[in-house]
Amino acid sequence: MKKLLYAVASLAILMAPAQAETKYRFAIVPKAMNNPFFDVARDGCLKRAKELGNVECIYKGPVEHEPATQAQIIQDFITQKVDGIAISVADVPSMTKSIEAAAAAGIAVITFDADAPGSKRSAYIGTNNKDFGLALGKQLAQLKPEGGKYAIVSGGPGAKNLAERVDGVRESLKGTKWVEVAGSPTFCNDDPALAVQQMSDLRTATPDLGAIVPIGGWPMFAPEGYKAFVNKNRKDIDAGKLTLVVADTLKMQLELLRDGYSNALTGQRPFEMGEKAMDTLLALKKGEKVPDVIYTGLDLVTKDNVAKLLN
């Protein structure tokens, strides 16, 4: 009888379902959800989460560039006790406090796209933003070595990644014949329509402005307004009197470049940022060590190679 009971018990153990795999909920918090750049990062996050199987990607941020709203969203995720958060930092001081609160709650925190290096985040995933700015400036210098007056269009004044890009552009053009105009950079707060307006205002304020360098793709994210600006200045652009070197390489931007609406693009890799964010947060939850900084690289695009990137 004992042997029979033992055999039944052994069979029951063999037939018992395997212990369910731990599921993780990771949030990705952009600076602004009305910025299509972050849509691409979201897509990378969702793709990788599906591949991993035991990960859920939650995408939520302010509709527009509002650091206070971003901080509140992060607090909500802390309250919900998500397993990890990836943040594109809109404002370093406020996000440093938010990251500290999340870390104190035992939540794994990383940054992507825009960093807060003095915070308690575990890793940064994204672009080397100083190199990004250097590349933008180098593209301008190569396209128009004779120089002239130039202006920069930036996003939020509190974003460290954008400040590094501005520094890179300036450093790259130092010692060339390019001179930055007064009032540069302008700050559009990641608002595409405002970025286009600022380009127009810069051109009006300095009629002989030789180049505009948006260090984010914002003006192109309002394609109709951007095309109207270019068409208004088409004569000078075609004559080489106004050069447009724009950051980012989303599909709509590549199409605009192909169609003659910019001279060059320098692109980041937001899809890869979203993918790596999931991998990195999962590694942290498993107690694994991760690199402090994970750079995702740049793409330099002109009319000579834009067709290849669109294929």
Results as ranks from 00 to 15, higher is better:
24 Y>M: 04
1 M>I: 11
302 T>M: 09
48 R>G: 00
72 Q>W: 13
210 G>Q: 01
27 A>E: 06
234 R>L: 14
175 G>E: 02
238 D>P: 07
183 G>E: 09
145 P>M: 12
250 L>M: 09
117 P>D: 01
153 V>Y: 00
239 A>W: 03
158 G>F: 04
296 T>E: 02
120 K>P: 03
93 P>F: 10
2 K>R: 11
106 G>D: 01
56 E>H: 07
94 S>P: 07
18 A>M: 13
104 A>R: 15
218 W>N: 15
289 K>E: 13
122 S>C: 05
103 A>Q: 07
3 K>H: 12
247 A>I: 03
103 A>G: 08
199 M>E: 13
298 L>F: 11
177 K>T: 14
199 M>D: 10
266 T>S: 09
16 A>T: 15
83 D>C: 05
64 E>N: 15
156 G>H: 15
269 R>H: 12
203 R>K: 12
167 D>Y: 11
215 I>P: 01
214 P>H: 06
247 A>S: 13
168 G>R: 04
112 F>P: 02
277 A>G: 02
266 T>F: 08
216 G>W: 04
218 W>V: 08
114 A>K: 01
179 V>L: 05
154 S>N: 14
84 G>V: 10
123 A>Y: 02
26 F>R: 01
236 D>P: 03
113 D>V: 09
26 F>C: 00
253 Q>M: 07
135 A>T: 15
72 Q>Y: 08
25 R>M: 04
222 A>K: 01
76 D>R: 03
242 L>V: 06
209 L>H: 12
47 K>H: 09
191 D>H: 11
159 A>E: 14
85 I>E: 00
197 Q>R: 04
177 K>G: 12
225 G>D: 11
241 K>M: 03
119 S>R: 04
